[in-house]
């Protein structure tokens, strides 16, 4: 997965689409858009954060029962049938990408219609850990994950690194190695050695108002 930060305008449509598709319980944002500022001099930018699907995942290392595991296609998966709710993975994850069902999650009839499957992780249960699982049931159908599919700005690209092709919601397909190389792609907290599978292209030549401008605009509108 590649996030082109130059294109992200912080609209949070991705979060809404994800929540809708997975019936994500309230207070959880499997894809969360942060507003970050690297230092005082630098301006702020939006930073969407999914699960990083690390190649060296601390959560998988720490799970005592193998409830979270790495699939051969690279997805870090979550088995709600096995999770004991010790929350060690939450402590382990440096990206705050894991959530816990503290109480019984509110259910919708639509959610309850489906039988539980590890590929969509709902109906949700009390006392287990939840996370972004990169929509395996969409991938099975050859479709983009909900967030990438929804992004109007085309900021979210998804693809298989071995095919070297990533596609965004606008249908634009790029050569992964090329955009990562020319765009100086980076990964979050590289220094922790988690080997994330999510790349970011830096927010250069923004195609949208910066967060400050957006806040000002919102304020004047109000």
């Amino acid at each position: 997965m590649v996030f082109d930060l130059a294109k992200c305008d912080g609209c949070r449509d991705c979060t809404k689409a994800c929540t809708k598709m997975h019936f994500v319980p309230p207070m959880q944002e499997w894809i969360k858009v942060y507003e970050v500022e690297d230092n005082q001099a630098a301006g702020s930018y939006f930073l969407p954060r999914t699960c990083m699907h690390c190649d060296n995942p601390p959560c998988v290392r720490g799970c005592p029962v193998g409830a979270t595991y790495k699939r051969t296609d690279g997805i870090v998966m979550m088995d709600q049938d096995r999770c004991i709710g010790c929350r060690n993975c939450i402590a382990q994850c440096p990206y705050s990408a894991r959530f816990f069902n503290w109480g019984e999650p509110p259910h919708t009839p639509e959610e309850m219609k489906a039988a539980y499957s590890v590929e969509h992780n709902y109906p949700h249960r009390k006392g287990v850990v939840e996370k972004c699982i990169m929509c395996p049931e969409m991938l099975r159908m050859g479709m983009l994950p909900a967030c990438a599919d929804t992004c109007k700005m085309g900021a979210i690209y998804f693809g298989d690194e071995f095919e070297d092709a990533v596609t965004n919601g606008k249908g634009e397909t790029m050569q992964f190695s090329k955009i990562a190389e020319t765009g100086a792609g980076f990964r979050l907290m590289e220094e922790l050695g988690t080997e994330p599978r999510v790349y970011y292209l830096p927010p250069v030549n923004r195609k949208y108002p910066s967060p400050e401008e957006k806040h000002m605009h919102d304020a004047t509108k109000a």
Partner: peptide
């Protein structure tokens, strides 16, 4: 502290020594 104390025995059924 466990969210699912009913599954505590999973620690023995599926225990992983890495954890």
């Amino acid at each position: 502290d466990l969210g699912r104390p009913d599954r505590a025995l999973n620690l023995f059924r599926y225990g992983r020594i890495q954890s």
